[in-house]
């Protein structure tokens, strides 16, 4: 095996490390009804993300720290949290991009009930998603491929990118005060089917969203667009659904 090499081993760039304080909002209903801030001091590297810091805390400091994560690469949408006051995915937020001279605050996303530490009850969020019928509605038998032109596909491309992380819905001030509001994520996913040329359920979905708690609650605050880790033009999608309801069709 060992093929001796005459070249000197490549000098691997040293990744700068730094000390940083992670200030986590802790909540444990079995201990107290109140949530409290807890500071953790950790040494992290320039390549580390907030998720890595949470891992380090959980694995080396306090195993009781509770949060969701799965893919750790911005795909599954499990780890949306409020970092320094903004909704982001912990796995996509490099610590070095934040101000490391100040404590970095990490809180659960707002507007959903906190179950423990950073874990919230996502059920109301998923319920709104289910309510807009997030599946293809087509009456013809699926005997052959449903063709679609590139332009037709482009019409709803943006909203296909959603990973249901809830960053948008839980950044929305209307949702904070009115948990019945469908919220941007549900509307984004309705948009994904309403403007799909293969789908025939646009009218049903537009009718569902033409509700007291539907699109008209949106006040174009743009928090959702800013929060979306997938760069989806969320507010625009909501506006397009409003327009479609006014037109009476997609």
């Amino acid at each position: 095996m060992a093929t001796a090499t005459t070249e000197a081993p490549v000098e691997i760039g040293v990744i700068p490390s730094f000390d940083v304080t992670i200030r986590v909002r802790r909540f444990n209903p079995e201990v107290s009804e109140e949530s409290t801030w807890q500071d953790f001091h950790v040494t992290m590297f320039g390549t580390d993300r907030v998720l890595d810091a949470l891992h380090k805390i959980k694995w080396e400091h306090d195993g009781s720290l509770t949060f969701r994560r799965s893919c750790a690469h911005g795909v599954c949408g499990s780890d949306a949290m409020r970092i320094n006051g903004r909704n982001r995915l912990a796995c996509k937020t490099l610590i070095k991009d934040l101000n490391i001279n100040e404590p970095i605050t990490v809180e659960p996303i707002k507007g959903l009930e906190v179950e423990k530490d950073l874990v919230v009850d996502m059920n109301p969020f998923y319920q709104a998603y289910r309510d807009i019928k997030p599946f293809l509605i087509a009456n013809d038998k699926p005997e052959k491929e449903r063709l679609q032109s590139a332009e037709q596909r482009a019409r709803f491309d943006d909203t296909t990118k959603c990973i249901l992380c809830a960053a948008c819905t839980t950044s929305c001030p209307v949702f904070w005060t009115d948990g019945q509001y469908f919220g941007p994520a549900a509307i984004v996913n309705a948009h994904r089917f309403i403007f799909d040329s293969r789908d025939e359920g646009a009218e049903v979905r537009l009718d569902i969203l033409n509700d007291k708690e539907g699109v008209w609650r949106c006040r174009t605050t743009f928090n959702c667009t800013e929060a979306c880790p997938r760069g989806i033009q969320v507010t625009r999608a909501v506006a397009e659904v409003k327009q479609a309801i006014l037109r009476g069709r997609a």
Partner: peptide, 18 residues
């Protein structure tokens, strides 16, 4: 079966918005 909210009856929100 996905549950839809109670049938969206007549509501004035659209007209309010307009």
């Amino acid at each position: 079966t996905p549950r839809s909210r109670k049938r969206p009856g007549f509501n004035l929100e659209k007209y309010g918005w307009m």
